[in-house]
Write a protein that binds this DNA or RNA. Sequence first.
DNA 1: CCGCATTGTAATCGTTTTGTAACCAAAGAG
DNA 2: CTCTTTGGTTACAAAACGATTACAATGCGG
Lengths: 227, 227
Amino acid sequence: MSKHLVEIVVIEDEEDILELLEYHLSKAGYAVTGFLSTDRVEQFLEEESPALMIVDRNLPGVEGSDFVAYLRELGYSTPVIFLTAKDQEEDLVEGFRAGGDDYMTKPFSYKELLMRIEALLRRSGALSNDKVKYRDMLLEPRQQRLTIAGTPIELSRLEFKLLLTFVKNPKQVLDRDFLRDEVWGDNTPDFNEKTINVAINRLKKKIDPTGDKDYIVPVRGIGYKLS
Amino acid sequence: MSKHLVEIVVIEDEEDILELLEYHLSKAGYAVTGFLSTDRVEQFLEEESPALMIVDRNLPGVEGSDFVAYLRELGYSTPVIFLTAKDQEEDLVEGFRAGGDDYMTKPFSYKELLMRIEALLRRSGALSNDKVKYRDMLLEPRQQRLTIAGTPIELSRLEFKLLLTFVKNPKQVLDRDFLRDEVWGDNTPDFNEKTINVAINRLKKKIDPTGDKDYIVPVRGIGYKLS
DNA sequence: CCGCATTGTAATCGTTTTGTAACCAAAGAG
DNA sequence: CTCTTTGGTTACAAAACGATTACAATGCGG
């Protein structure tokens, strides 16, 4: 979809499993890059900086854990989840010693994998912990980022602040005075009547260009509300 | 990694399991504080800040996950490993949703628990690595040296410190206040607004003279981020 | 002390964002 | 239906902000 999404690298030599992983991760909204071996991965890391790597232990040529240990040696600290059929304790220990963050044995639940991915992304700071969702809109105040149905939308600071106050007070009619205080600040003298109109207008054009989503609707004589 | 002084909190209502945990963790070199219920934990967190918490799901009165969710709500981001007899998928999902970092079902191997603890500490703690690699940049803080794609680049003290804070917080938007505190120190009075701009500018010119790598990108009205 | 690198400050430029004003369209009251 | 009121739309001006450059201040090694 887009480069704004969280990027995950999967290294897995069994092609059908790799495809299944790619399918599940893409569906969950991640940008996935798959590798059948470690051959091109180092080169890839020189150019991109994925948020997480899922690495099979059994890879052609190299042990997955040796490869991760090598990356750690180089200085990469990308979070790693090992996937493996090996469930012996010493294999697991080897994985963690190599610098892995988590370890799952096959067969595993995809739901659980997704949960562990999310937890690790949260911990490593790749995901913002404060998110506000409303319908298909996802706002991340710290990053000042908005995605609608997965598509990133660029908003200016004012526009974001405005949308955020609506999302924080959903379904309520926000009168013009409230919006002025909340978004522009209460110390603003000679505040132009139409400033709000124009700001709302610009916001609407960005979050709903076709105008059929009806996020923000006017309430005549009072203000606006998010429906 | 020095395990000295690393403080771990264990919340477990079954007294014998708690003792066993305390035994194993102490033996591994951690300072352990055990609780039989969540009652005193919040008060404890106000005074101390443990590096990690091990929390049983089944606690008298409160669900362990609810308690962790409550702590997260309060703003505590202490790493959490859940311990539980519950191995249903939805229980696990609930644990992660509450803000847990890892999840182990009883009976579990102590060796594995210790590995997971260490991995989580590594990930969450300030790992003072002597090498940090990000894309094709390699920073060596000890020697204050930078190489990009193998080529050494000369950076001044300030420039290095600035780049290091970006590499340590990749993909996150660092606002001007954060950068000021982190790089210049928080005790700087009458800090010129443009100082950051100029410093970033000089840094960019050195690490990306042609300007096509896009390491550091501005986020208008907030600050900058490393992409 | 001098010379050099480093860092801060100020001025200027260009772009983006935001405010203002004029005009258009729609809703409601009579 | 017409008039009034209020919101929508557009164009333009002002302001905010980052980039860039030049220059001054600072610090450090000789």
